[in-house]
Amino acid sequence: MLRRVLPQFARVLTGGLGAYAYDIDKVGISFHRAAWQQWPAPQRAAVREFLHAWWAHTLLTPDPAVPVHALLPLCAEASADIGPWLAVWEDLRHPVADRHLTDMIDEWEWDLLEDALPWRSWFVWSEEETEDVRTELAAWLVREAPARLRATGAPSELRHAVRLLGLPHADRWEDPHAPRHRYA
């Protein structure tokens, strides 16, 4: 079914789904369940190209129709892999991409510090795979985010949150900059 409606669906997706925007978190699983990676090569390539173009364009768009914190899970679930999407982001050295990183960390800070995947995975991955995705995301943030957060003038709390991600879970809450100090 997805194969037949994909051209029209792509137009709707890139426009933000309008009244159906609340369903954006189900789109990645729809792609995944359609098993697009097993379609004939030209169709598979078209889907991959669409997702990559949409992702790169969104990272460089100041006010995208679908926020980056919603599109990253969609792309990761659609492809069952978060690595390629993080690699694209890493290669894009641009103030708008950096601003999106700041916004995403702000949106996901608590989940990340609790060692939780900051979105519902909709059964794309097993528990072990979900943990691997979360670990890969956290490691990427620890490595990639500090300089970009400084460049955007992000609040010190967000910079500390990323630093805390690099610590073992128990040690995070002993740190003087742990979030409980901010909310107390």
Rank of each mutant, 00 (worst) to 15 (best):
P95K: 06
H57D: 08
M104A: 14
V96G: 07
R48L: 00
A46P: 10
L101N: 05
L72P: 10
P42W: 00
D81V: 05
K26P: 03
R48S: 04
A76L: 03
Q37C: 12
W119S: 06
V96T: 14
H32V: 00
M104N: 05
R33K: 15
L117M: 11
A19P: 07
W89V: 00
E114T: 06
P73S: 07
I29P: 03
P62R: 14
A41Y: 10
R44K: 08
R99Y: 04
P62F: 09
A65R: 02
H100L: 11
L74T: 14
V88A: 10
D115W: 02
A65D: 02
A19Q: 12
L117S: 13
P67W: 06
D111M: 10
P73G: 06
H100R: 11
L59R: 10
I105D: 01
L74V: 14
D81K: 14
P118H: 12
V47M: 01
Q37M: 13
S126Q: 05
D103G: 12
D91Q: 13
W110K: 11
L117W: 01
D111N: 13
L59C: 11
I29M: 05
A35H: 15
A53M: 04
A65H: 08
P84C: 01
D98T: 04
P40D: 13
G18M: 01
C75F: 02
G83E: 06
V68P: 02
D103Q: 15
A46S: 14
D63Q: 11
D81F: 05
A97R: 03
F50L: 02
D115C: 03
L59Y: 03
E114F: 06
R33G: 14
T102P: 02
A35Q: 15
A35L: 13
F50Y: 00
A45Y: 02
W122R: 15
V96H: 04
A65Y: 06
P95M: 08
L92A: 04
W36Y: 10
W85D: 01
W85N: 05
D63P: 02
Y20N: 08
P42H: 10
W55K: 00
D111G: 08
G83M: 04
I82Y: 03
I82M: 13
K26V: 06
A53Q: 12
S30P: 03
F123A: 05
I105T: 06
Q38G: 15
D115Q: 05
P95L: 08
W36V: 01
V47Y: 02
C75D: 15
W54N: 00
W108R: 08
A76T: 06
W89H: 15
W89K: 09
E90M: 02
W36Q: 07
L117D: 11
E77W: 01
G28F: 00
E90L: 03
Q37W: 12
I29T: 12
V27E: 04
L51A: 01
G28H: 10
I105S: 04
D81N: 14
V27T: 09
A76R: 04
S126I: 09
L17W: 15
H100S: 09
E77M: 11
P62I: 09
S126H: 01
L117R: 13
A87S: 09
I29H: 07
L17I: 15
H69W: 14
A19I: 04
S126E: 06
T102W: 03
P118F: 07
